[in-house]
């Protein structure tokens, strides 16, 4: 059993009005240390799948287990706590709290976890250095470029030592240089620190960096291939 285990998950939006089937019977397992891309045409269900895995949305049927914990039956507040402890998120945009500096953004989740100040401070320095922003730590998001903001978001997602990081189109708003820079950092963290990444993307250059590519079509897995 892997770090993520999805079994027979379907998701139907608006079951009462005009039902939209976003996922149908998706099953997959992600092992620790993977660097996996979810691809597929627009509307194929990538975001829905990531949201269901991340406990942001509930599947209509099927089961999702993260690190051996079944999350399908948890309440809203239990899900929030679960996400805080076990899952790192990188969204397409609006990842950071605008009124906090890069440093404060990274320590924020650790603060929610009541980690001691010394540990927070040390880990924040270490993570911002790992994403190459050691000299930007006291800037607010508005003072950083889009690529820098996404790198802070990766550092922030890693801060609570989650089981894996979910990233829905993390490079969609970035120019190609920033995008490849972000990918370099993610790949290095994956190789050197063993961080598990599961991300969705449209971008062929990003797809080329993935070591496993899962293709969704109409809410179902059409292909699942490993690259060397």
């Amino acid at each position: 059993m892997g770090v993520i285990h999805v079994e027979g998950v379907s998701k139907i939006y608006n079951p009462d009005k005009i039902p939209v089937t976003a996922l149908q019977g998706v099953s997959l397992t992600i092992e620790a240390g993977e660097f996996t891309a979810i691809v597929g045409p627009s509307g194929s269900g990538k975001t829905t799948l990531l949201n269901v895995i991340g406990g942001l949305d509930r599947p209509t049927s099927g089961r999702v287990a993260v690190g051996g914990h079944e999350i399908t039956g948890l309440s809203d507040n239990e899900l929030i706590d679960f996400r805080k402890e076990h899952i790192g998120f990188v969204f397409q945009a609006y990842n950071l709290i605008p009124v906090l500096t890069a440093r404060e953004n990274v320590s924020f989740v650790m603060l929610l976890q009541n980690r001691p100040a010394a540990e927070r401070e040390a880990r924040t320095q270490e993570l911002l250095a790992a994403v190459g922003l050691e000299d930007q730590i006291d800037k607010r998001p508005a003072e950083l470029s889009g690529g820098q903001q996404q790198r802070v978001a990766v550092a922030r997602a890693l801060a609570p030592k989650p089981a894996f990081i979910l990233a829905d189109e993390p490079t969609a708003n970035l120019d190609s240089h920033s995008a490849s820079n972000l990918l370099d950092i993610m790949a290095r963290l994956n190789e050197e620190e063993g961080v598990t990444f599961l991300f969705s993307t449209h971008d062929q250059r990003v797809i080329d960096r993935a070591r496993r590519v899962i293709t969704l079509v109409d809410g179902a897995i059409a292909r699942d291939e490993y690259r060397s």
């Binding site: 929030i80 706590d81 805080k84 969204f91 709290i97 929610l112």
Partner: peptide
């Protein structure tokens, strides 16, 4: 709205 959604997504609970 988005920012508050993000905060709740990354683990800030409702009471907070």
């Amino acid at each position: 709205y988005k920012e508050l959604g993000m905060l709740m997504a990354i683990g800030m609970n409702k009471w907070r």
